[in-house]
Computed example of a mutant assay.
Amino acid sequence: MTAPEFLTTPQGRRIAYRRTEGAGPGVVFLGGFKSDMQGTKAVALEDWAKREGRAFLRFDYSGHGESGGEFTAGCIGDWAEDAQAVIEALTEGRQILVGSSMGGWISLLMARRLPERVAGLVTIAAAPDFTEDSMWAGFDQAQRTALDMVEQVALPSEYGEPYIITKRLIEDGRNHLMLRDRIDLPFPTRFLMGTADADVDLSVAYRLLERAEGPDIRLLLVKGKDHRFSDPECLALIEDAVAQVSAGMPGA
């Protein structure tokens, strides 16, 4: 495995990334909450991009993977700043954003902030607003009190150590909610999700589809697939979605 390169963002955070040169539009992979760029989907998509001769970028948010910083110090606003910094500094022209779970939320924020740089969007089990609608809404009174008194609470995770959820994460998330208003996506967009996802409720996908407005937006539900969405069949669907988005771009 090659060593990562690093970018220092305007906020001073040190972000690890791996970039593949190739033709445009480039593809940028945005990972999930407490995930990293070594995940199955990111690596598989990089392999696809290499086969297709396409530019590709994967990276770790601050506090994730090989990037600097502590995970518990971060929040949605910080990680969105990280994504914006790498897109602006490390890519050229318009990009297809592929966002997994929290990365789906971040990619929607990028579509709002950098509309001139986004050529298309693919989300995988997108989890916009999860800090409010899943975490905060699911906290009992004891957890809410703990969050207020000691500014953090531990949540069990099927993926390893418990997640430490901070008061800052919850409060900052409220500044970046997407599902309360219209979401303009004026480019080819594909939302992918498994019906057996235990982490993101199917209602989130339906709400996202309802809020999204654009000329070419589709939701693909795959029966029986879980939140990981990373078996060979799902990886092929992700690649196909990126190819569809590329083909649907003006001038393609």
Rank of each mutant, 00 (worst) to 15 (best):
E88Q: 15
F59A: 01
E70H: 14
S62I: 08
G53Q: 10
A83H: 07
E92S: 14
R58L: 11
A85W: 00
L57N: 00
A85N: 03
W79Q: 10
Y61E: 03
D60I: 01
G93T: 10
A89T: 14
H64Q: 13
L90P: 04
R58Q: 07
G69N: 05
Y61P: 04
E66A: 14
I76V: 15
T91K: 00
R54A: 13
G65K: 08
T91E: 06
S67H: 06
G65F: 00
G65N: 08
F56T: 02
R58V: 04
H64M: 13
Q84L: 14
V86T: 05
A85M: 05
A89E: 10
V86S: 04
F56N: 04
F71P: 05
H64P: 06
T72S: 12
A80F: 12
A85P: 06
W79A: 08
I87T: 11
R94V: 13
I87C: 12
R54T: 12
I76G: 04
F56C: 07
E70S: 15
F59W: 03
R58W: 02
G68Y: 07
T72M: 11
G53A: 12
S67R: 03
E66D: 14
F59I: 07
C75V: 09
R94G: 13
F71Q: 00
A85L: 06
Q84I: 11
G74T: 14
G74A: 12
A89H: 03
S67L: 01
G77E: 09
G65I: 01
F71K: 02
E88M: 14
D78C: 12
Y61K: 04
